[in-house]
Computed example of a mutant assay.
Amino acid sequence: MSVVSPRQIAANLAELWSPRVIADVDDSYVKVARVEGTFGWHSHEHEDEMFLVLQGRLRIDMDSGAVELGEGELYVVPKGVRHNPSAAGECLVMLIERKSTLHTGDQVTDKTRSIADQLRPL
């Protein structure tokens, strides 16, 4: 075990929308990502997805409306809810997801990353 800085790790990531696993807790992964622009609509049929903004602002559009998150704020997208995260400027996020959660859920896009890719060394 070692102490890590999620914000620092996310800030040093080269790729946008490419989360990296920084810890695992029971059946969940703790991930960080550097994001900007629009991710794309998708859903996770059987898993909730938690977003915590480490820096910047994140918008999550859903069929029922949208939430806007600032630094230090979090939101849990309930399982089965279609959502589309976006950030007008660079944003650093931490995610907590079950280990079974597929990155782009029910969609496969150019942003899709395998669990193996998300687990590669930092």
Score class of each variant (00 low, 15 high):
113 R>H: 05
56 G>Q: 09
51 F>S: 02
52 L>K: 12
32 V>Y: 00
56 G>E: 11
115 I>W: 07
62 M>N: 00
40 G>T: 01
50 M>G: 02
112 T>L: 02
34 R>G: 01
87 A>N: 13
117 D>F: 00
108 V>C: 04
70 G>F: 06
97 E>W: 03
6 P>K: 10
95 L>G: 03
10 A>W: 10
70 G>K: 08
59 R>C: 08
69 L>Y: 09
104 T>L: 04
30 V>Y: 07
17 W>K: 06
36 E>D: 10
2 S>E: 15
98 R>V: 00
55 Q>W: 03
52 L>D: 14
122 L>V: 07
100 S>T: 13
13 L>E: 02
103 H>F: 05
36 E>A: 14
26 D>L: 12
71 E>N: 06
19 P>T: 04
103 H>D: 12
12 N>D: 11
115 I>V: 13
64 S>M: 09
108 V>W: 06
5 S>H: 13
68 E>K: 14
121 P>A: 12
91 C>K: 12
41 W>N: 04
69 L>G: 10
114 S>K: 06
3 V>I: 15
110 D>T: 08
91 C>M: 15
12 N>P: 00
47 E>K: 03
66 A>I: 02
40 G>D: 03
100 S>A: 10
39 F>L: 09
90 E>G: 15
9 I>V: 15
91 C>D: 12
89 G>D: 15
108 V>G: 05
80 G>K: 09
81 V>R: 11
18 S>E: 09
11 A>Y: 05
12 N>K: 13
102 L>P: 00
69 L>C: 10
101 T>K: 05
122 L>M: 11
45 E>L: 12
79 K>P: 02
55 Q>Y: 04
55 Q>T: 03
89 G>T: 15
4 V>M: 11
59 R>V: 14
111 K>W: 00
76 V>C: 07
83 H>F: 01
5 S>R: 12
11 A>M: 05
57 R>C: 09
25 V>A: 14
26 D>P: 02
115 I>S: 10
13 L>F: 01
101 T>Q: 06
58 L>G: 06
25 V>K: 14
111 K>I: 00
108 V>A: 11
